[in-house]
Structures are given as C-alpha cells and as structure tokens.
C-alpha cells in the first residue's frame, strides 16, 4: 500500500517551503536519550537503559550560538536526567533567551530532581509537559502504570508555584493520540482538557498542543507489530494539508542531537538525516538558509491541522 504514497517533497509546490526561513527562531536540543519512562509513542525510543547523553562541552557550543535564536527548546529523553541540565538552563537564561523544557513531570517526583520545579520557576522557564489524556486509564496505558497520578500531583505543585496561572510562568500540555489515529482539533480538545482538569483536580494550564504521532522509533514498531503501518501512512497521506507546509517547524529551527550533530528536526535525528551544510554544532559559526531534508515521515507534520512541537500549524 505504501508504494502509492507520493514522495513527500513532490507535494511541495512552493519552492520556498523546501528551505528554512530567513530567520530561525528555535534551537531545539536533545540532551540525551536517557529517560525514566518508556512511552509507547516515543519516536526517540528513549528509556532507562539508554546511555547517549550530551556533554557539557557540546552544551558550551550551543551557548555560543544562542544569540542567533529566540528560543532554546530542551528535550530528551527526560532532559532533567542529564547531570548538566541545570547548568545549561542557568547559562542560557543568563543570555536572556526564552527557554523551554519538555518534561514528563514524573521524573520530578524523584529525590534527585525534587527542587527542579522551583529552579525553573525562579528563572521563568516555560514548561511543556506531556499529558496524553485527562483520564488515568488512557494516560497510564501510553506512559506506564502510575504516571497519571504523578503528573496530576506535579501539575498541582506547578500551579502552586504560579505555573499556568502567572502569565510569566507558562505551562503548556501536550496531547498525542493513544494509538494509530490522528489528533483532534486542538482548540476543542484544549477546552475539554481545561474543563476536566479544573473540575476534577482544580488544575490550570496555559495551552494544549495536539501532536500527531510520528511513524518512527517505538511508535513505528507498534504500527508494524499491529499491522497498522500501511493504514497509518495512508491516513497521513490522505490527510495531507498543503496549508501546513508554510509553518512546518523545520523551516524555523535547528535541531541538535545529543552528540552535537545537526538536524532539521527531532524526527530526522531518529533517521540520522543530518542537515545540508555543517554537520556538528562544534563547527557551526554562521547560520545560513538551508535546503531541508524531507522523507515520508514528514506527512505526520502536514496531516490535518498540521503538527509541530508547538502544536497545530495550519
């Protein structure tokens, strides 16, 4: 079935959309694949046994290029598990750049990381937290047994620090589908989340991002194991929305792998598709407009309302 899906790049009519935008906004940094969880949808295949971790030396190169960007977006794995995580956040905040940390929140219950919420709040770091649904069963099915209760109690703590309430303390949540289907309309789902999380737990948050699962890593294995891969790719292809091309996240960001290798996005990291041009952050001194490397997993970013690390794009 997959052979009748056209090459993604052939779907891009406007040649400008095959290149990055003149000004990049975001540098997204994957500080390591080590994670306390092993979520079913994880394209990174992150987990407790992964050993790939970014060094402080690589982080120093990242700090050097920060003036070229508006936002530093730190992801993983569980980024908190990198022993240089707090150092990186601290140094980045000092430069005045907006810093985002993508947290599974569950990790923040562990003794070693218990002071991180206050640390992030003091520095006005934006938190993007995963919450696949507002019910225990759906959340635990995807992220592991007991995760929902821990996420809810951490969201309450973050609210108590002002996160999701004070406009300087942004707390965004991330929904992603619990299987081989597309996400709902982001605005409608956000309303649903806000109503239920407030009525059931008294929790506030800033915005919800509805993400499409990308057919890579652990999620790709699930699709293949359950004979859903071809159907899912077909669904992504049939839902191709040309209006989502202009704001694909790869056009506005540079993605850095744990070893400093440079990519157009976190998904290309999984495929080892490094960018056109300088290959490693240690050699990066000037940022030029570049031709993006596409493949058919890119259909996940253009299906329906579009999908990016910041939610819908169309």
């Amino acid at each position: 079935m997959s052979e009748i899906i056209k090459n993604f790049e052939s779907m891009i009519d406007n040649p400008d959309y095959k290149f990055t935008h003149g000004k990049l906004r975001i540098i997204q940094v994957n500080v390591g694949k080590l994670c306390n969880l092993s979520c079913k949808h994880c394209h990174v295949d992150a987990g407790p046994n992964r050993t790939e971790i970014m060094t402080r030396e690589t982080m120093q190169h990242i700090l050097r290029v920060l003036p070229n960007f508006e936002t530093l977006d730190i992801t993983g794995g569980a980024p908190e598990m990198n022993k240089n995580f707090c150092w990186l956040v601290d140094e980045a905040v000092k430069t005045g750049i907006h810093v985002i940390v993508r947290s599974n929140l569950v990790i923040l219950h562990e003794k070693e990381y218990i002071n991180i919420p206050e640390f992030l709040a003091d520095r006005h770091v934006e938190i993007v937290a995963s919450l696949p649904y507002y019910s225990e069963n759906d959340c635990d099915k995807q992220r592991g047994s007991g995760t929902f209760k821990k996420i809810i109690s951490m969201l309450k703590k973050l609210n108590s620090l002002g996160y999701g309430i004070d406009e300087k303390l942004i707390l965004n949540l991330v929904y992603n589908p619990g299987g081989a289907f597309l996400p709902p309309n982001q605005d409608e789902l956000e309303q649903q989340y806000k109503t239920r999380l407030m009525s059931d737990y008294g929790i506030s948050f800033t915005h919800l991002f509805a993400l499409t699962n990308n057919p890579l890593g652990r999620f790709e294995n699930f699709l293949k194991r359950t004979n859903n891969y071809d159907k899912y790719m077909r669904k992504l292809y049939d839902s191709f929305n040309p209006a989502a091309l202009e704001n694909m996240m790869c056009r506005f960001q540079l993605s850095v792998g744990w070893d400093g290798q440079l990519y157009d996005c976190d998904f290309n990291q999984v495929l080892n598709l490094t960018i056109n041009g300088v290959q490693n952050i240690s050699e990066l001194y000037e940022i030029h407009k570049r031709k993006i490397k596409f493949a058919n997993h890119c259909y996940a970013c253009t299906a329906g309302s579009g999908s990016s690390c910041g939610g819908a794009t169309a």
Partner: peptide, 9 residues
C-alpha cells in the same frame, strides 16, 4: 470518536 478526542470509556 478517537480522532475527535473521545476515549474508550
């Protein structure tokens, strides 16, 4: 239903 944000419950 799934693609519009309903769950199995």
């Amino acid at each position: 239903c799934l693609e519009n944000g309903a769950n199995e419950e």
